[in-house]
């Protein structure tokens, strides 16, 4: 029973962390290696918000706003010239991540920062005391996932985005302002990532490198998921589950590299990952 909860909550956390990366990769076909830096930015938004004595929950909208604003600047200055050079885009965003990390360090210092917990304590589920916050993350993942489903299926932007995913040239020919779709998608992606950064603060320490630890896992999951949020959810459940099981029954050390190694193997066998499923 604990295992089941562990698997579901681990998958939920992975989903929340990877969603922003997927939004960008799905539409723009660009891998945003500054993803870790945006998570960190989110974490520090929580530090700044609570530092000003505001309600910690307020950090969520603040982080989304800050993340998307910075994302907008990034898209225009860094990513836009590189759409035709996707490998270079990986490098440029990685470099950007270094810059953001150092700026945070110069501003806030290198220290580990602390934020009040959003929700603390445990809750009784089926006779088990389980971390309340981890269960809350499942809700957060559902909100993010459903939010995207609504955004993609129910709005004009979503329609345009889907058109760009399927056939960008055609989309442009149909009069869709693809540049705007890209900018908006990128901003939503980075905003969401910063938001995920806030959601991580009760689980991890906040320091200038906090995002880096999540980058590779999120990257691998997105590679497997392609451009579909459904596939990402499946990937998070499968690989997050594998990570939990390996950690529990074999060794947490192996568990730490489970996601990366399994994703790499899956991609070798089926280069499109779960995208077709």
């Amino acid at each position: 029973m604990t295992i089941l909860l562990d698997v579901i909550t681990t998958a939920a956390i992975l989903f929340v962390v990877a969603a922003g990366l997927l939004a960008i990769f799905g539409v723009l076909k660009i891998i945003n290696f500054a993803h870790g830096a945006w998570l960190t930015v989110g974490g520090y938004c929580a530090v700044a918000t609570t530092g000003m004595g505001l309600n910690p929950w307020l950090a969520l909208p603040v982080a989304f706003a800050v993340g998307s604003a910075l994302g907008g600047i990034t898209e225009v200055l860094v990513v836009r010239p590189l759409y035709r050079r996707p490998l270079d885009a990986i490098l440029a965003t990685w470099g950007l991540g270094i810059v953001v990390g150092q700026l945070i360090t110069l501003w806030f210092g290198r220290d580990v920062q602390f934020t009040p917990n959003l929700l603390s304590g445990t809750i009784n589920v089926f006779g088990l005391d389980y971390s309340f916050y981890r269960l809350f993350m499942v809700l957060a993942a559902l909100v993010v996932g459903l939010g995207f489903a609504v955004l993609l299926e129910g709005t004009r932007l979503g329609l345009s985005a889907r058109a760009v995913i399927m056939n960008e040239t055609l989309a442009r020919a149909l009069g869709i302002d693809t540049a705007k779709v890209r900018l908006t998608t990128f901003m939503i992606g980075t905003g969401l990532t910063a938001l995920a950064g806030v959601l991580l603060t009760p689980l991890t320490s906040v320091d200038p490198d906090m995002g880096l630890a999540w980058l590779i896992g999120a990257f691998m999951l997105v590679m497997v998921a392609g451009s579909s949020f459904g596939a990402l959810a499946v990937a998070c459940l499968v690989f997050g589950g594998a990570q939990t099981l390996v950690s529990t029954f074999v060794s947490p050390v192996l568990g730490g590299i489970t996601v990366a190694v399994l994703c790499a193997l899956v991609l070798r066998i089926s280069p499109k990952g779960f995208a077709r499923a």
Partner: peptide, 20 residues
Amino acid sequence: EEYLPIEGTDWTAIISKLKS
């Protein structure tokens, strides 16, 4: 006696083992 990689961030499985 359980170890997590030095950069690891997810202690879930270890904590569950500790509890049981």
